[in-house]
Design a protein around this nucleic acid. Structure first.
Lengths: 228, 228
DNA sequence: GCTCAAATACTCGACCCAGAGTATTTGAGC
DNA sequence: GCTCAAATACTCTGGGTCGAGTATTTGAGC
């Protein structure tokens, strides 16, 4: 298995493009942009040229020819090798079938949320909700429009997927805000006491100690739930 | 706004830990692990030491003391500065309130899916569904168990959130598989014809041309839907 | 009191990536 | 036919990240 260097999905996109026909890097970037892939695959020039060079070193693509029109920079045209085609199929199949653990920033933020005062956290979450709702509506409008134009849904599944996740996110946060406000989420009472402690300028070590205690009180639940 | 160098959320986690009390790096990593944060914030030693060094350079933490017990390596204890506390609050607030565009690998995979033969794609998606379902059940069991132990839900919101997204993902893929099988998703008919073309060893350029045509036929729908 | 695995505590180098910078050419509008 | 913005086509550098490697110490079990 040549599963080294499967970090940047942009490299996979390059392989799929060269599966269609030989291309030079700049053309790859414009094609990806035209097809709307830059919404799903992070694309920037620096990375593009360096992933292509790394594919070449690994023997997955070859430089087919170097053309020059006028005094423009040379355009190096790349083509897919047999190994490249195999790697493309293997990598893509893997991405489809194997869920990989990812670390969305907002999940990190949630895990640190009680560091902020409760009231602030609620305000910030509500502000996020408004923005998310805007994004969701724009996306839905775009999809509806595309459908009306007769654009095949097959080429929009990644956007539909993103919208589905976005909606789930919104639903979860809405519920969370409600439960924070009503205090029905267990631990919120404690959060309130923590905020009071922090406000009434007690020695920070005292506060820290109590906080640590409260967090500790129940860490026995930690058992293996690995996924790779 | 000192919003440079807000790349790795691990740095934010470090700031929140030092907000509780001074610590040395290894203790930070064990604390994060104990509290189950490594599920939500990617943690590895190499990054830990380098993000701390970068925080120090930016004046957000200071080295408080260097202790040595026995002939063990020295432990450098770090503390939060005033600027560090401000940055922590600002950064965390930002993460909570501002949705950031991310690029999950599976979304990339979906956007390239029609590169694979239809039947293979379906098989792979079904295989993913099985794995996702397993992960989901493990997660639900873990959450139920924690709740039974009296563990405060407040400290589990990031896991609840992850489960909510996972379930949405499963729902979407289930529907997608159904629609691929029934052919009710527009464009699947075209996918089938593409597969036939590729199978009946026609000149690759011929195939490529027809594929490109089909993809092009409808790219006018592309209008701005930016979010940053 | 000996052994060996696990925990403690970090270091290092190779690779990867982002984004600003560079230089030319085309083409729309006056 | 001149100008200037947009498109074409990359290059370079600095910083970030990963994961394997190193070296000591504790402690459980025989």
């Amino acid at each position: 298995m040549a599963s080294r260097g499967r970090t940047n999905p942009l490299a996979l996109a390059v392989l799929t493009l060269l599966y269609e026909r030989p291309m030079h890097p700049y053309e790859m970037s414009s094609t990806l942009r035209e097809r709307g892939k830059e919404d799903s695959i992070k694309l920037n020039y620096g990375s593009l040229y360096s992933v292509i060079e790394s594919l070449r070193k690994r023997g997955l693509v070859t430089t087919q020819e170097v053309v020059r029109s006028g005094r423009r920079p040379e355009r190096t045209v790349y083509a897919l090798t047999a190994a490249g085609k195999a790697e493309m199929i293997d990598w893509l199949s893997d991405l489809v079938a194997q869920p990989v653990k990812e670390f969305p920033q907002f999940e990190a933020a949630l895990s640190l949320l009680p560091t902020l005062p409760l009231e602030d956290a609620i305000r910030l979450l509500e502000s996020r909700l408004r923005r998310q709702t805007d994004i969701m509506q724009t996306g839905d409008a775009m999809l509806a429009n595309a459908r009306d134009q007769g654009f095949p849904r097959l080429l929009l599944i990644e956007s539909e997927f993103r919208q589905a996740l976005l909606k789930a996110e919104i639903r979860y946060i809405r519920t969370l805000v409600d439960e924070l406000k009503s205090g029905e989420l267990t631990g919120v009472d404690f959060w309130r006491r923590m905020d009071e402690l922090r406000n009434s300028g007690l020695p920070r070590e005292e506060v820290a100690a109590r906080v640590a205690d409260m967090i500790k009180e129940g860490t026995t639940w930690l058992d293996g739930h690995s996924n790779d």
